[in-house]
Design a binder for these strands. Structure first.
Lengths: 255, 255
DNA sequence: CGATGTGAAATGCTTCACAGCA
DNA sequence: TGCTGTGAAGCATTTCACATCG
């Protein structure tokens, strides 16, 4: 009971500390993708899509790297973790690569998303590209304000959060997005979990407590602003990070 | 011209590779704060504020770690980089710690922020806690839509982006926030830079090109959603990351 | 006694550098 | 020849473990 945060996991590691030749995981036991890589994959997606739109069917690691402002070796290593999808001498096929990344990110399936809190942020999310394209469908919008309940956004009507049970009965919900004021976030989170949501994405500026089996991530709209303040305040930006990307937004992960 | 992304910096490192006893940097040459730490500082802030509100004046690294879902040693190491602000045997004084972190993040000064693109997201940002509390003031709201220009949000009237020059003459602008559709982002960014903004925070889902002397950061509202998809798709979340935080939102930094 | 602060070890991530394939 | 894929080296960050101090 000394450290509630650090359950025995490292010591009880299933695999031996010094490798006994893992044999390079094949098609069945997929390669381990570092989270650092996972977070870059959506960035590559975005760049690839832009390249495609501007008529580039093929792209080199150098080009991708230049757009993402990272090192080309990193791009190649990231992509090689998904498989050998490039063609030596010419590069990667943009469309094909997008497909592969989608598959890796699990965006080849569709996650039903419910958004709670239909203020400005909730509306922005409901309409945002990232929530409406590949991989996600917004299946429900919830609020408590009678002035908002009943309103139609896109092709979805905002419902009262008391109807959550009914909504859950109609459609499956896998991801809950909290866009409420901080004061409501915890209780809304509890309700969503009660309704069977497996993951929570919290935009409210508060620390949420949820059961460990719920995947919890947390986005702070002002965190980059604060990081900017830090670097702006000391114009001697760390030489290494100067052109470095860093991909963020607080995420708390539970089991 | 082979690698436009990676200027010589590592090799030309000022400090010797093996330390010659740096002598522990004192008050003048501040300690180097790793970016990983910088990004956690706002998280600590939020937790500290909540603890304060709930009547806890003192907090231990264990408590902070439990709330942030990270290792207590990490908390202690992070905080010790700012100075020795804890009291052995009892912990940290929450209010004092908040102050110190503010100072470290440069939030003891006030950065004038201009938000371009007053749709749902722009409004959400303009009203968001993170943009209106310590460290930042929203000094201008800009849009092109005649239906929006002239509208009053909080105590600021939305102005047409053509008035940017005039705005810049009236008040200093240090941070520009882009909350426009992707299609407008690049030109708006150019305008803001032209108006003297030193940093850009881009919420538009597009890759922005800006001069290297501009500090550029980029937030993707759906990136965590995509990361969720990845982990949800393979319910065997990496055992190590299970309770790990990770703090994100794409950031592209230019000198 | 309890909790900080911190060397040193462990781990993870990035970058280099180059073999190898189209 | 050009660009990928990848061991191995180099860094950064995390975690341990414990001396230290209020």
């Amino acid at each position: 009971m000394t450290d509630p945060v650090d359950p025995p996991s490292k010591a009880a590691n299933p695999g031996p500390p010094t490798s006994v030749d893992p044999g390079r995981p094949e098609s069945s036991g997929e390669r381990r993708i570092p989270e650092a890589t996972v977070v870059r994959l959506p960035v590559y997606q975005r760049i690839l899509e832009e390249l495609l739109r501007s008529g580039n069917a093929t792209v080199s690691s150098e080009q991708l790297a230049a757009s993402a402002r990272i090192n080309a070796a990193k791009v190649r290593k990231d992509l090689s973790l998904l498989g050998s999808f490039g063609t030596r001498g010419s590069g990667y096929d943009a469309a094909f690569l997008i497909e592969q990344i989608d598959r890796e990110l699990g965006l080849d399936q569709v996650w039903p998303v419910v958004i709670a809190g239909i203020g400005n942020l909730g509306r922005a999310l409901a309409n945002s590209q990232g929530f409406t394209t590949r991989g996600f469908t917004v299946v429900a919008l919830l609020d408590v304000d009678p002035a908002v309940v009943g309103e139609r956004i896109g092709d979805i009507t905002v419902r009262h959060i008391d109807e959550l049970e009914a909504v859950a009965a109609e459609t499956s919900l896998s991801i809950g997005v909290i866009a409420t004021p901080a004061s409501a976030a915890q209780s809304v989170g509890d309700l969503l979990v009660g309704a069977g949501v497996r993951s929570l994405l919290n935009f409210a500026p508060t620390v949420l407590a949820v059961p460990p089996e719920i995947l919890l991530r947390y986005v702070d709209l002002s965190i980059e602003l604060q990081v900017m303040s830090f670097y702006q305040a000391r114009l001697g930006v760390p030489s290494e990070e100067q052109r470095m990307p860093s991909i963020r937004s607080i995420g708390l992960t539970g089991a």
